[in-house]
Amino acid sequence: MRKTLLLLAVLASSGLIGCAKTDTYTPPADASGEDIFYANCSKCHKPETSGHVMTLSSAVANPDALIQKVHKGGMTMPAFPNIQGEPAQRLAEFILSNSRTK
């Protein structure tokens, strides 16, 4: 029983390794929002079976809030401080166009 619990703890924590801290990714200036999303965000945010890339809370369902979330990260989401300017706007537009709000 103890070995099973240890194994479960290791598996759970290893699943979060890619989804924490700060990521230094810097997109090319001409990267589309879709390119940025699939290069980085889809590592943790798998597209839903409904065809949406994610479900957003109403608190982040606007470009400014999404960009802030990308820059600062969250509980297990890494911060992406180098996604700035037009690439950040394109990423926010892609997410908003391809997500649903709860």
Rank of each mutant, 00 (worst) to 15 (best):
M1P: 10
T55D: 11
P27F: 05
R100L: 13
A79Q: 00
K3G: 11
H71Q: 13
R100N: 12
T55H: 13
M77Y: 05
T76M: 15
R100T: 14
D23G: 08
I95S: 07
T24P: 11
S32Y: 08
P78Q: 00
T76K: 06
Q89P: 05
M75V: 11
A29L: 15
A31S: 15
G15F: 12
L96C: 11
S13R: 08
S14T: 15
M54V: 10
L66V: 05
D64P: 02
I17D: 00
M75K: 06
A29N: 10
A20W: 03
T22N: 04
V60F: 13
A61N: 08
T76F: 14
G73Q: 07
M54K: 02
A9P: 00
K72S: 09
T55F: 05
G15C: 14
S32L: 07
P63E: 10
L8Y: 03
S57A: 12
G18A: 11
L66S: 06
D30E: 15
C41S: 01
N40P: 01
S50G: 10
T49S: 02
S57N: 03
N82M: 09
S57M: 06
C19P: 05
G33D: 14
E34I: 14
I83W: 05
H45I: 09
I83T: 08
L8Q: 04
K43V: 15
G33N: 15
I67G: 08
T101Y: 06
L11I: 11
A20I: 09
L66M: 03
Y38A: 04
K21V: 09
P27K: 03
S32V: 12
K72I: 06
P47D: 14
I36E: 11
